[in-house]
Design a protein around this nucleic acid. Structure first.
Lengths: 351, 351
DNA sequence: TTGTAAGCGTTATCAG
DNA sequence: CTGATAACGCTTACAA
């Protein structure tokens, strides 16, 4: 089993000394230190994290809860989390919710008892819902015995008491709409994300406010709510067309829905961008592959994951620090789906 | 801290009884069982996995090592692993190697000492390399003390002693080439995967053998080795063109390279499939989005992950069972990049 | 059927 | 500076 005892006996010291050498907690004489290191080397010993965790109340494991693995958005974030985690010595326990709140709660509950050191959470909770609001509040007070388990949320600041790496969804949506307005579009439809989600809600608000500020009255009939999936976007586009209301551009709350919508338009013989301009959000690589390529608002996904882990590590280090919400910047990417002068090169890296 | 002791004292029994109720190891009288359950309920108790792991030598955690998160291929597999893992009560500790063997070894080494119950591994090891061959052999004997840690490999049977969920790479490649031959192509180029990888090697062998069997002598100058990335595929296509050797079709060892190659051809004014037909392998969803859409060989990714976890669970249950290698079936998907009659609908689900 | 008590591998306290 | 030894939360002989 080659445990600390074996190292101790081989080095001819007590296990306490071995522990001290390993953890640099108390000074150890150079001579003994040398003997211990030699023994560790020779026996190929590595600390048993279970035993350590039992005593030290730390496992160096971080729980990560995301809605989906099989999408392009979250894997990119996961990379950032993982690489930063490696830097801080954290392993990742990853969980998928499929957008199901019951599963999300179950995962959180499990992690609470799993003695992990923190949670990175991309939540599907709805702040407007009373029961979920309760849940959100509870996230700020997850504790396993006397140990508080910090939670960092992704994409938006779910609760003022929680660390978060967010983007300004309103501003991001405004960027997309401003782009369409600049191109001369006045009748702009919106394929919204689920109203229950912060991202859906604030992107929609950004859409409406930007139109208002430009003196265009937003017609709510030109808003269709989707589920962030390509097929959902397809159906939203169909519903928009069925209304026979004129529109010359569509802002979809994510790339997946935008791509679904593009396909629906194309299937009906509409030309993009001549008949309908389309812009999405997230700037995922598949959006560069379609013809026309999809304009989008870039979200720094890797960076979002990286900084989330950074915040978590900082809080594990110092649980008393005030909650920090980082807002990452977004960027307009113009491709052919809105402008003939747009980019149409394919993203050939990082996938 | 609400531990087993609290439950015991609330129920007025010993901790042993609580443990027996939880684990169903020894019979407990209905009456006490009831009291214990009530206490567990009331205190919202959940077993501390660290304490349990220390004693029982199990953590219910499985290590998963994949080359990349940010690709479309592995996230799909990860889903299958996760969902099956949930069924068997396993959590996933996931690691990314970036295709770096040093990292892969380090992760395996870490997991060996992390007291996980098993490893699902998508390895980058090369069987032809002596040192790596040694490493591959060692995978069959990973043990933490007296406990053997089982390893299941993905994509190919790395070692006869290991469980694996594989596909028949030769046969899959043969499918692709046979399709091109049927379309009348004789001069077929191959953008190969890294020769050091099993997948690269056997897809290449499948390519060559199928040509030979069809009476076409494969010209090795028409083979370029890429790195499975889109940009790598792009460069391979450029190199093929520079040779000025005639070819009318290309089989790329994965979709990413095929897409890169398509772009290279299109950038030079070649029409697909009229001037060059292109087929890939893996059948990832982005391949449906390009114009023309990419023909491919479908690999059941989700199923691969699911069955890997199934094998692992079976082995944890019974370490003595003989190694099992499952070979999953592949399927030809014809799209416009090889045939005008091919499919060109977009994949609008599962991403 | 139930309880007592001995570990599992580590860290931390405290006495030498 | 070093070494016994007592936890940590749980499982499991073994005793009752």
């Amino acid at each position: 089993m080659t445990g600390i005892k074996d190292v101790a006996s081989r080095a001819g010291v007590s296990i306490a000394t071995v522990s001290n050498v390993i953890n640099n907690r108390k000074p150890v004489s150079p001579e003994l230190r040398e003997r211990v290191c030699e023994a560790i080397e020779a026996l190929n010993y590595e600390v048993n994290p279970v035993g350590r965790g039992l005593k030290s109340n730390r496992t160096n494991q971080v729980g990560v809860i995301v809605p989906f693995f099989n999408q392009v958005f979250f894997p990119a974030i996961l990379r950032g989390i993982q690489e930063a985690g490696e830097k801080y010595g954290f392993q990742l326990l990853v969980f998928e919710t499929g957008g199901n709140m019951e599963k999300e709660r179950a995962h959180v509950r499990f992690l609470q008892h799993a003695w992990i050191d923190g949670i990175v959470l991309a939540s599907f909770a709805n702040r407007e819902n009373i029961s979920e609001r309760e849940y959100i509040r509870s996230l700020g007070h997850i504790r396993n015995g006397r140990k508080k388990i910090p939670v960092v949320t992704l994409e938006n600041a779910l609760d003022p008491g929680l660390d978060a790496v967010a983007i300004d969804n309103e501003k991001a949506a405004a960027r997309a709409v401003a782009h369409l307005l600049e191109l001369g579009h006045k009748q702009i439809a919106h394929i919204a994300g689920p109203e229950r989600l912060q991202t859906g809600k604030y992107r929609r608000i950004g859409f409406q406010n930007t139109l208002l500020e430009a003196g265009v009255h937003p017609d709510t009939r030109l808003i269709e709510e989707g589920d962030y999936s390509p097929s959902g976007g397809y159906r939203c586009a169909e519903r928009l067309l069925e209304k026979k209301l004129p529109f010359t551009a569509v802002f979809a709350a994510n790339d997946q829905m935008a791509i679904g919508a593009m396909r629906a338009f194309m299937d009906r013989g509409l030309r993009i961008p001549e008949d309908v301009a389309v812009i999405g959000m997230d700037n995922n690589f598949p959006s560069t592959l379609t013809s026309p390529a999809l304009s989008s608002i870039d979200i720094p996904k890797y960076e979002m994951g990286r900084q989330a882990m950074e915040l978590l590590a900082a809080r594990v280090e110092n649980p008393e620090r005030p909650p920090e919400v980082r807002s990452l910047d977004t960027k307009l990417i113009v491709r052919k789906s809105t402008s003939p002068k747009g980019d149409d090169s394919w993203e050939l890296h990082n996938w």
